[in-house]
Design a protein around this nucleic acid. Sequence first.
DNA 1: TGCATCTGTCAAAGCGCTTTGGAACGACAT
DNA 2: ATGTCGTTCCAAAGCGCTTTGACAGATGCA
Lengths: 347, 347
Amino acid sequence: MNLKQLSELLGLSQTTVSRALNGYPEVNEATRERVLQAVKETGYRPNKAAQRLATGKAGSIGLVMPTAPDHYSDVHFGEFLTGLGEEAVRHDFHFVIMPADPNDEVGALRRLAISGNVDALFVAYMRGHDPRLPMLKSLSMPFLVHGRSIGSEPDYPYLDIDNEAAFYDAARLLLQLGHTRFALLNGPGHLDFAIRRKNGLVAALSERGLSLPEDCVSHTSMTDELGQTAMERFLQMPERPTAILCSSTVLALGAIRAVNQAGLKLGEDISLIAHDDVLPHLKPENFSVPLTTTRSSLRAAGVRIAQRLIGTVKQEGPFPEQELWKTELIVRASTGPAPRDQNLGGV
Amino acid sequence: MNLKQLSELLGLSQTTVSRALNGYPEVNEATRERVLQAVKETGYRPNKAAQRLATGKAGSIGLVMPTAPDHYSDVHFGEFLTGLGEEAVRHDFHFVIMPADPNDEVGALRRLAISGNVDALFVAYMRGHDPRLPMLKSLSMPFLVHGRSIGSEPDYPYLDIDNEAAFYDAARLLLQLGHTRFALLNGPGHLDFAIRRKNGLVAALSERGLSLPEDCVSHTSMTDELGQTAMERFLQMPERPTAILCSSTVLALGAIRAVNQAGLKLGEDISLIAHDDVLPHLKPENFSVPLTTTRSSLRAAGVRIAQRLIGTVKQEGPFPEQELWKTELIVRASTGPAPRDQNLGGV
DNA sequence: TGCATCTGTCAAAGCGCTTTGGAACGACAT
DNA sequence: ATGTCGTTCCAAAGCGCTTTGACAGATGCA
């Protein structure tokens, strides 16, 4: 069943049927009803390829999935994708995924853009001075960045969370509790969010005249395994840190294992605040000692980004070009006053 | 630049240019060269939407990504996707991903099929009596299954590994080494591969008159965390098992942590064989005690499946409808003779 | 030389939709 | 009656490609 047949069936022109279906105003409500009814009965579905050719819109957004022999496919990516997808399905959009080596992200992105299969691009895992940004700007295709790129002119559309503020606030809380020795379990050092979180922590510390020794910072992929290893190293330091900031609840999972194995008590000997992306299988309140967290839902970000991107393609704007979401600091049991004995040397 | 302009530029008809580009034989080689040269110079790219409308082929394969509030997005899925993508890119295919609740897989698959965005479907995470199978067969769209569905008529195209044989062989090796008390760290119990692996183990055991107690089987998602928990339970049993079969190196990772924490020696007190999907960041030879494994590359399976699916769409067949890959049993240090003292009560 | 057969090319007809530029009609005011 | 709108609908022209059917011109065989 195609439009022509349907219109003949109804004794209407293709124009009218098309307009009825696409919600144009210049069609009688009674006629529209009749059309809609016929669609239901016949099961007519417009041909996507034809629509696409006629409108020039593919109804899809493209993204590059970083992948390589040594690449961790991490849960955060999957969670974000879920949000993106939820919203896309709602609008009958789909997304096209191009897997690519992380070293060839620029090329992959360009290929995706000129492939003609997508209307818009989505980009994540931003780095400082990200080379994809100039390329994206040179393309005449809408795009949206999740995160930001420190060192780049901030003249591109993005959605990010306020990573500096999140870790600044978290650090302030721990400082108020009397902690002076901090350590940071961070994500990969070249990624923007990791840089900013570190900056937030450093800023809070320097307000108190404190600094963050380099050996108290760990940059790794965000798996619990690596979180554990890094934490073990921290715990073996002669003057071990009492306050830990952690870029993911996944890292925290491993870190806490290390704390337990060292026979230390979380929330007493060691205070820990993790950033919580609201991963469904890793709820901070379900940890044996519930985790104090900075929270911002990754999935919600995915939904919002899809909304904006799809809206832009459909020209339903205007959307704010740049959004910076605040995180929530939620205090649970993993934070407590700095242990006395260790705090004597402090400020 | 479109075909019409290009053909005018060359003083040829659209027909000839189109044929030159698509490798049809009825065009002079010299002419073809000239066309190809012009394409290079002008940067002409055929419009995908128009091609699609004219040919009826979308150049894409569709798949459903299981996702839900409580769903683990696991590394195995990502790894497989990578293989799929690698091959797709090579053929200028893309894949369309529809996220869906695992409880609505059938509906999601149907929606994807009728959306008109895909030429073929790929399906994984097969269950016993999988309800998607009858639906897929009713569709007139090529599809390919990764895995099989025990309890369903095996009349659908699939690619699977011989899970029974893998775990049968693994179990035999351990039996030959004198082990009599087995435990199984398996994937989710409703999934076909898990069922078959258990069957393989049970078959090997029953040949020796042994059985597998229900409390020696653990069915969980395949994360190291859950592997550890399950293994801890096994180790606390009064007559603890000495031979462990493990459905993933990810599970093994956790399991081994439990073994170490119990102060036991892998390959001496406990022998363990894991199935190795050849995950890039988890090489069995890099474990502190290198792991004996049954091996079959998930990524390679992805590549092969993409090949077959794309070939089918392009009508380049014939491909074998059903492929069953043998796994390799690779002996490393995590397997050894059953400990004497514990083995006295055995066969 | 005549006739059949290839070769290389082309014009034109789709593919199924959207959208432009009217046109028919009744209502309303002049 | 005439002109002006607004409403509701339509015919036809694309969108950019593939593919069918036909046709010159070259070639082979008798």
